[in-house]
Structure formats: C-alpha cells, structure tokens
Design a binder for these strands. Structure first.
Lengths: 128, 128
DNA sequence: TCAAGTGTATCGTTCGTCTTAATACAGTTA
DNA sequence: TAACTGTATTAAGACGAACGATACACTTGA
C-alpha cells in the first residue's frame, strides 16, 4: 500500500501523511471508506503506532479524514478537504499580501502579478 | 542606539537585523552612511561579533547594505532594498497563487481577497 | 612597513526542538 | 469481557540552530 523511503530526510509521519493524502485526492480511497487502524498500518510499515497516529491527526486537521474513538478513521467527503485547503491558502495569502503592501507594492501591482500568473496557467490548461 | 530584549524568544541576530532594517527604512541611517563596525556594535550590545556579523550578512542579502573588506559596512541606496524585497515577495506570491489555483481558487476569488486586505489597510493609514 | 582598524571563515559547545518510541488510558462492539 | 478501536503522556535520541572563541584576510594611516 505504502512504501517508506528511509533515505528521505523528511520525518516518517510526514511521508505517511503525504502519501495517504495523495491516495485520497486521487480517489483511490473513497469518501466514507474505513482506513486501516493505526496499529495495523504501523505493523505493515514496521513503525510505531504513534507515527501513524500523528499522520492521521494531521490528515484530520486538513479535513481529509475524521476519526471515531473505538471505531476507526474514515475518509471525509471531497468538499471537506477542499475547503480546508482553501482556508489554509487564504491565510497564507493574507499574510504575504500584508507584507507586500508594507514593502511598497500597490494593489494594482499585485493584481497585475496575479493576472500574469493566471494567463500562463490558462495556456497550460489547454493541453490537459 | 539599539536595545536587545532577552525575553524575546527570537534569536539575537534576528532582533538586530530587524531593528537596523527599521532604522534604514525610516531613513535614520542615510544611504552611503557608514555602519558601526561589527566589533564596535558588538561591544555596545554586549554580544559576540559573530552575531552582528550575521545580522549584517542578512541585511546585505536583503539589499539594505553592502560591505567592503577592510573598510566597513555601508547603507545601500533606497532602491536597492526595495527591489530586493519586491523580488522576494513576487517569488513567494507566485508560488502561493499557483497552489491556490490548483486547489480550485479562481482568479476572482483571489482578487476579492486582495481588495479586502487593502481596504482594511487603507483604514489604518488614515490614522497615521 | 606595520600596527590597528576593518570584514570573513571555521570550529566547537550549548541548548532547544523535533521525531520516534514505550506505555498507559479510554471508548466500542460482538 | 475480550479484543478491537483511537488518544494522551512521557522519555530518549537525534538533529539543528544560535552563539562564542579564535584565526585569517584585507585596508589604511602614521
């Protein structure tokens, strides 16, 4: 199901989080589906249950799944994590734009920058 | 000239960097002016010369000043650091907006967000 | 020329935080 | 109630950031 890379310098829980998130985003794990238990997945990956627990906690934080004590972890509906991701990005964008304006960028500067980025993206989309 | 706050959890070199940057931005240190030497400022602040050195290196990286071996550190022309800051912000903004659009935010969503941020900032400016 | 000033590079110690694990606690269900 | 779930606490180890001691390299003026 998942293979960990011990040459990867990132922590184990982060690798697990990322790979599970990918499976959910791609639809390999359907909404409502039951995730493997923390102990079971820990056994499969030869890792401490806490490591899986931390990955699951992060995925819950990001809206990808929800947990029920005594029952297990389950994949959330798609819109859940999309909303979560948007909120996160909005937060970061706000902070960055605040910096930008204190540094002297005008509103128009930023809008022009955004238009530029989006126009390039439109070209890419034509290829998909 | 500068007072360090040891209750502040941020590292000393970061405090020094920030406060010197403020002095430069506000014009208290004029372009072309000679900065105190690393050893001299280190003495004044009762801190290791390396700490000041690191602050100066950061300020040079950000375009606030330039150094000449054997002579000293000097405040850069204003446009130098403005350009540097803008480039940095543009880079971060580009990366973040790319993420935003892959996450489903539309161009209009982002522009609305920016307008919101700027309108709040305008209110603040009226008070200064 | 050389002493005294300047910036810079290297190295080691300390200290905090991050990561992971061991273990115990708590809820659910057949 | 046994066997499964998730969760909380604590400790140990690794790692990196911050700072300082020290030596190196360049410039200037007496």
């Amino acid at each position: 199901m998942i293979v960990l890379d011990y040459r990867d310098k990132r922590p184990l829980y982060e690798q697990v989080t990322e790979k599970l998130a990918h499976l959910i985003i791609r639809g390999a794990l359907a909404p409502g589906e039951k995730m493997p238990s923390v102990r079971q997945l820990a056994l499969e990956l030869s890792v401490n249950p806490n490591t899986i627990q931390r990955a699951y906690a992060q995925l819950e934080q990001d809206g990808y799944l929800y947990s029920v004590v005594g029952k297990g972890n389950f994949v959330s509906e798609t819109f859940e994590w999309k909303i979560g991701k948007l909120k996160e990005l909005k937060k970061e964008l706000t902070a960055l734009i605040s910096q930008a304006q204190t540094a002297g960028m005008t509103k128009e500067d930023i809008i022009a920058l955004i238009s530029d980025i989006y126009s390039r993206a439109d070209h890419k989309e034509e290829l998909t």
